[in-house]
């Protein structure tokens, strides 16, 4: 399903905390888009940053060419966050008045907050910032739904499912099925498909 992008390139950031499945989410999403014929450039970091730190993947989706693996500041069109404060962190660097933010509402506390040295903003504060600084935003309990499905790690796929339902990108259930058929062992596909559908249902 290759359709004209509303903007070229479309700049997507997937962010979260090391270990939340950020990399997998970006691979799956990129795979779905590449299968549909787009150029997708992903910039990501892993290694040390995965150890409890903030992680971020930049996806540059284009009909014409590959792009820089780092997008310009203020240049995000869509931010997908597996953790709410990470949505804000990315927003403050890559946000602009037209940005759409889709964030998981489940909190992963940074060490500084656990020790009591730092504060974690309240859900109201987070919602307030999103209202003031984004064109569209969704805050969904992907982790809660994933736990219901039996594995919190599925929250990343739930987020991809939710993203498909926002209509922001040319992706749908069929492109997801196609992608997991290529990259996932058969035993894992049903639960991931269920997670995708659950996510889509949250929007």
């Amino acid at each position: 399903m290759k359709v004209r992008l509303s903007k070229d390139p479309m700049n997507v950031i997937i962010t979260g905390v090391g270990g939340q499945g950020n990399v997998l989410a970006s691979r799956v999403l990129a795979g779905m888009l590449v299968n549909s014929g787009y150029y997708v450039t992903i910039g990501e970091t892993f290694g040390m940053s995965q150890r409890g730190g903030s992680v971020m993947s930049h996806l540059r989706i284009s009909q014409k060419s590959i792009r820089s693996p780092q997008m310009p500041q203020g240049g995000a069109d869509i931010i997908i966050a597996l953790e709410p404060v990470e949505a804000l962190r990315v927003l403050t660097k890559y946000g602009n008045p037209d940005v759409a933010v889709l964030s998981n509402s489940r909190v992963v506390y940074p060490i500084g907050v656990i020790t009591g040295e730092l504060n974690y903003p309240s859900l109201t504060e987070i919602q307030d910032i999103l209202q003031k600084t984004t064109a569209k935003n969704w805050l969904i309990d992907a982790t809660g739904e994933a736990v219901k499905l039996g594995n919190p790690v599925l929250s990343n796929i739930i987020m991809v499912g939710a993203l498909s339902a926002t209509g922001l990108l040319p992706i749908d259930r069929r492109s997801f099925e196609k992608e997991i058929a290529r990259n996932m062992t058969a035993d894992k596909r049903p639960i991931n498909l269920l997670a995708f559908d659950t996510g889509a249902g949250l929007i």
Binding site: V85, E86, I111, G112, V113, E125
Partner: peptide, 10 residues
Amino acid sequence: LIPARELTFC
């Protein structure tokens, strides 16, 4: 309002 997220042991 955003707390820093320092690296730590898993």
